[in-house]
Amino acid sequence: MIEEIDLQKVKETAETYYRDGDFYCSESIVKTIRDAFALSLPDDVIAMASGFPIGMGNSGCACGAIVGGIMALGMFFGRTQGKDQKVQKAMDLAHELHDFFQKNHKVLCCQILTKGMTLGSPVHMKQCIAFTGEVAEETARIIARELEIKVKNGSRIIDVR
């Protein structure tokens, strides 16, 4: 496990994956978090996020960025055995990430967040790239806090407790 995480780098990396067309929002976040925290998980975890962009398979439902963030939290705090009470921690942290996004944007519905935008237009891309970076950064902040990993933002050390 790593000893320190740079939130600015996490944000910029996720945004770059999306901006450059390498991955969509949910995939960008899962890949960024996996790599930033040096998890030895296969690329299959990124593939698992491939159905969530554009509001769950282009249906306009839940924002793919928030879904990717919740998937990334599950990589750390999710359960692998039935009836494991560890699930409550994963659910609590997912709720925290949900509330963070909702507080900043009022809704999580992709259709509402992108209302009036043309898919792939500069204004759409700018917004979704920003959402991707924002959610990746907050997801990394939550993980670091829970695992007591030192956090910096650029060159500045910060306290995430």
Rank of each mutant, 00 (worst) to 15 (best):
M1R: 01
I2L: 12
E4L: 15
D6P: 02
Q8T: 07
Q8N: 08
K9G: 01
V10T: 06
K11H: 09
K11Q: 13
E12Y: 05
T13N: 10
Y17I: 01
Y18E: 07
Y18H: 15
R19W: 02
G21A: 09
G21T: 07
D22Q: 10
Y24M: 14
Y24I: 05
C25R: 12
S26P: 07
S26C: 13
E27Y: 06
S28Q: 02
S28Y: 01
K31V: 00
T32R: 03
T32V: 06
T32W: 03
T32Q: 03
I33M: 12
R34L: 05
R34T: 09
D35L: 12
A36N: 11
L39A: 10
S40N: 15
P42E: 08
P42N: 10
D44A: 14
V45Q: 08
V45W: 02
V45M: 08
A47E: 00
A47W: 04
M48P: 01
A49K: 04
S50C: 04
S50P: 02
F52T: 03
F52P: 04
F52G: 02
I54A: 15
G55P: 01
G55Q: 06
G55Y: 03
M56L: 14
M56D: 00
S59P: 00
S59W: 00
G60N: 04
G60M: 04
C61D: 01
G64Q: 02
A65C: 13
A65N: 02
I66M: 01
G69F: 04
M71F: 04
M75T: 12
M75D: 11
F76V: 07
F77K: 02
G78E: 13
R79L: 09
Q81E: 14
K83Y: 07
Q85N: 08
Q85K: 15
K86D: 12
V87S: 13
Q88N: 10
K89E: 10
A90W: 06
A90M: 15
D92V: 11
L93F: 08
H95W: 03
H95Y: 09
H95N: 11
L97C: 12
D99C: 09
F101D: 10
Q102K: 15
Q102T: 13
K103S: 12
K106R: 14
K106D: 13
K106C: 05
V107E: 14
I112T: 14
L113N: 07
L113F: 07
T114H: 03
T114L: 12
K115A: 14
K115L: 11
T118A: 14
L119A: 11
L119T: 09
S121H: 09
P122A: 11
V123W: 03
H124D: 06
H124A: 14
H124C: 13
K126M: 15
Q127A: 15
C128S: 09
C128Y: 07
A130D: 14
F131Q: 05
T132L: 08
G133C: 04
V135E: 05
E138Q: 15
T139G: 05
T139K: 03
A140I: 11
A140W: 00
A140D: 11
I142C: 11
I143T: 13
I143F: 04
A144I: 03
E146C: 10
E146T: 10
E146H: 12
E148R: 13
I149M: 06
V151N: 04
V151P: 06
V151W: 02
K152E: 07
N153H: 15
R156Y: 08
I157P: 00
I158F: 03
I158E: 09
D159P: 00
V160M: 08
R161T: 09
